[in-house]
Nucleic acid binder design. Structure first.
Length: 218
DNA sequence: AAAACGGGGGC
DNA sequence: GCCCCAGTTTT
């Protein structure tokens, strides 16, 4: 059964296994760029793949990368820059709305706490957690679909609700590993523990995994 | 051609 | 809890 020691061991196996792989764009943004760009990249990444997000974000940031400079672009222009992420009109609007609130109420500084982040339009627990953990180095568990899917496959958690996954993980994962989970499971989820046709035969954890919801096994 | 994919919000 | 949002990728 799962306990804190087993979780840590699994995370270390995965860190080894994925050590030489390129890191995803969004989960890497916080290491190199400011929380604002990380936040905007998170908005772009909603329901869109990492590579598409990366192209859109670089495109957008080449034109404007602060709340004030983004506000000089109208929604149409932003939409054009971030195409073809899904929901690009809605996201263009959200990006402007967030920029305006930041400029007016936060002196252009992204909040570093749950309450502040969750008060923004288009920001839910996943985005807030990623900004906290990757942008500010605070201990938050960011449950995106990779984390949700993979921990359920393992049998570490058993729920359809990402918020319950977050709670369950907070119970069992030592706090100094909270920030590592998301980047690690995202990279692992993109290349091995994929939503469809996961490469179970190449997975270092295949013996322990309960393969919950695995669609096609090869 | 059709199904799968991925967060948040509004109801 | 259910459904919508709009595009790309995979089958």
């Amino acid at each position: 059964m799962w306990n804190d020691k087993k979780v840590v061991k699994v995370l270390e196996i995965l860190a080894d296994y994925t050590a030489s792989w390129n890191r995803p764009y969004v989960e890497r943004v916080g290491e190199k760029r400011d929380p604002f760009q990380l936040l905007i990249a998170c908005i772009l990444s909603l329901r869109t793949k990492d590579e598409v997000t990366a192209r859109a974000a670089r495109n957008l940031f080449s034109q404007a990368s602060t709340p004030a400079s983004l506000l000089t672009l109208d929604e149409k222009k932003i939409a054009q820059l971030i195409y073809p992420v899904g929901f690009y009109r809605k996201k263009a609007r959200t990006i402007r709305d967030i920029s305006l609130i930041l400029l007016k109420k936060y002196n252009s500084r992204v909040p570093d706490n749950w309450e502040g982040l969750l008060s923004f339009p288009g920001v839910g627990r996943k985005t807030a957690a990623l900004v906290l953990s990757q942008g500010y180095g605070k201990p938050a568990i960011c449950v995106d679909t990779h984390v949700h899917r993979i921990t359920n496959r393992w049998g570490l958690v058993k729920t359809k609700n990402p918020e319950e996954t977050e709670k369950a993980l907070m119970e069992i994962v030592p706090a100094d590993y909270w920030q590592k989970i998301n980047p690690l499971l995202v990279i692992f989820g993109q290349r091995t523990c994929k939503p469809i046709s996961p490469f179970c035969s190449a997975c270092p954890l295949r013996k322990d995994c309960q393969k919950v919801g695995v669609t096609i096994h090869r």
